[in-house]
Design a protein around this nucleic acid. Structure first.
Lengths: 207, 207
DNA sequence: ACCTGAACACCGTTCAAGT
DNA sequence: ACCTGAACACCGTTCAAGT
């Protein structure tokens, strides 16, 4: 009846969790190259075959990390949206939150959009998590249109336009392709806010 | 005095060129995973150590491909700009050309912005080629400001905003994260044009 | 049920040796 | 000067075997 003490049943209470955390740790410490099945396993104190009990492949393990990243992004967007009432203000806040997430959680962001996970059909849970985050933006667009605050037209297209702008900013800042601008978090946020407002003007223009 | 016939001096007349072309061929045919020193070498009929006579590393070889990509992008932008006189029209045309390039040359585009080449300080020629392309956009922004056609402010910031939007669109379309929208080239171009015009409205707004 | 140890087929890179 | 052949230290993945 009495179960074996959980602590010593296996090497880890929760190896799966430990592996996912190790991915981010190693990525943050030594870069994307340092994240291998072998280093991740070693960091959690198991051999490099052990992770295959919890994930079918390295790709799947990274997909779970990415999925969690989209969950966190969504939570942060929801939180930032709560500070505003006006739909256009909310729109702006989403964009700023998106870029801020990329700046604060660069490892998650890079894994979320890594080319190895581009085939979303292969990772339904990841696709859904990404869609849930996008849905927040889409809802605000629809709300803004209903309130007559932005021009009509395909809501998805407008949402994609806004998303593209923020995604582009996040990527360019993260990859340091924007000369020095991305070094300070404040600058990244300020740039995102400025870009958001420019876009807002453009969207309001044709109401 | 008489040199050895060029044709048979070595296995290739221009192995370097053949290797660079093989990178794109393999990428287009079998994806990024298929591009290894060994497959690239095999495709050009040499052993996998031979490329090291022409490039210090795989990374450097890809950097040269990326550099050529930026050259082609720049040429296409110049060509598309020539069709317009008005600075704001030129601006729009740059954006469309950027997205069109990504849609037509996805392999080059992906290599140009691959995370492995993110450290531009390591590849000065690549950095310069990218800067040359960005310079086209920046010049149009400055021209537009001088003509009083868009609001004032830091020209680099405005140019980055425009670049970010088009880059974001290109990336999202290429990675098929925009649901189905990116399947047809025409749709990608149309979306880019629409987004460009929205942005233009936003930039004109505060003149 | 979960992990180990050894093996397999791959990588990128180096280097003595050939021509 | 340019390429080969063999070696090295890595990968991701598989699987019989242990507990």
């Amino acid at each position: 009846m009495r179960p074996v003490p959980k602590k010593k049943r296996f090497h880890h209470g929760d190896l799966r969790r430990a592996l996912l955390d190790a991915v981010i740790d190693l990525y943050a410490k030594d870069g994307p190259h340092a994240v291998t099945m072998r280093t991740v396993a070693a960091r959690t104190g198991v051999t490099h075959a052990a992770p295959y009990r919890h994930f079918h492949s390295k790709q799947e393990m990274l997909a779970v990390v990415a999925e969690e990243g989209f969950g966190r992004l969504r939570a942060e967007i929801v939180e930032s949206m709560a500070t505003r009432e006006d739909p256009l203000d909310r729109w702006e806040e989403i964009g700023v939150a998106y870029v801020r997430f990329a700046a604060r959680s660069p490892c998650h962001f890079r894994i979320m959009y890594s080319s190895d996970l581009a085939d979303r059909a292969q990772f339904p849970a990841l696709r859904d998590a990404a869609a849930d985050a996008f849905r927040l933006l889409l809802d605000v667009v629809i709300e803004s249109q209903k309130a007559g605050r932005v021009r009509g037209g395909d809501a998805v297209e407008l949402a994609v336009t806004a998303w593209a702008m923020m995604h582009g900013l996040a990527v360019l800042l993260l990859e340091r392709q924007v000369t020095d601008v991305g070094r300070k978090l404040d600058q990244a946020e300020a740039l995102a806010r400025s870009a958001s407002r420019t876009l807002r003007e453009g969207l309001v223009a044709k109401v």
